[in-house]
């Protein structure tokens, strides 16, 4: 039999029509989920918490900010947040050495982070190094 039938070659093709649709859907997903959010805050300079260091610093005339309830005191004198900012700016801490830049921060255990954060931000903004005063156990 003289079968001379040639096999027809089928053209194979990957359907790519909807590829761009899929890709654009992915783009929309990423655009919606990406948050272009800038972080706000401040870099704190906290000493390592060694007790000896804290004691030597305390012997010198180191400004102490205390938080008791809702009140702020600077060296035992009642003060508002704006006044504290002015007083600390007046100390020109940025021009001083690390040891002279220490501002002690004393707060009750019940003080919330909001109040603490405001004072820490204030001290950091004027170039101060925050020395956290902690109550020793058993006292």
């Amino acid at each position: 039999m003289g079968l001379d039938r040639r096999k027809k070659k089928r053209e194979t093709e990957v359907p790519t029509d909807s590829l761009s649709d899929v890709a654009f859907l992915l783009i929309i997903f990423f655009i919606l989920t990406t948050s272009i959010q800038r972080l706000a805050g401040f870099k704190t300079e906290l000493p390592s918490g060694e007790k000896t260091q804290a004691k030597t610093q305390q012997t010198e005339k180191t400004p102490t900010v205390a938080l008791n309830g809702g009140a702020i005191t600077l060296d035992d004198k009642g003060i508002t947040m704006d006044e504290l900012r002015e007083r600390l700016a007046g100390l020109k801490l940025e021009t001083k050495s690390n040891n002279e830049r220490v501002i002690l921060l004393d707060a009750e255990g019940s003080i919330n982070y909001q109040q603490y954060f405001e004072v820490m931000a204030c001290i950091s903004s004027v170039g101060g190094v925050i020395g956290i005063l902690t109550e020793e156990e058993g006292k």
């Binding site: 906290l46 000493p47 390592s48 918490g49 707060a107 009750e108 255990g109 019940s110 003080i111 919330n112 982070y113 909001q114 603490y116 954060f117 956290i132 902690t134």
Partner: peptide, 18 residues
């Protein structure tokens, strides 16, 4: 940190980081 967390709770965490 949440604004209402008390110092006795967050202070050890700050210490731990330092």
């Amino acid at each position: 940190c949440d604004e209402m967390i008390e110092k006795r709770a967050f202070s050890p965490v700050l210490d731990a980081i330092v």
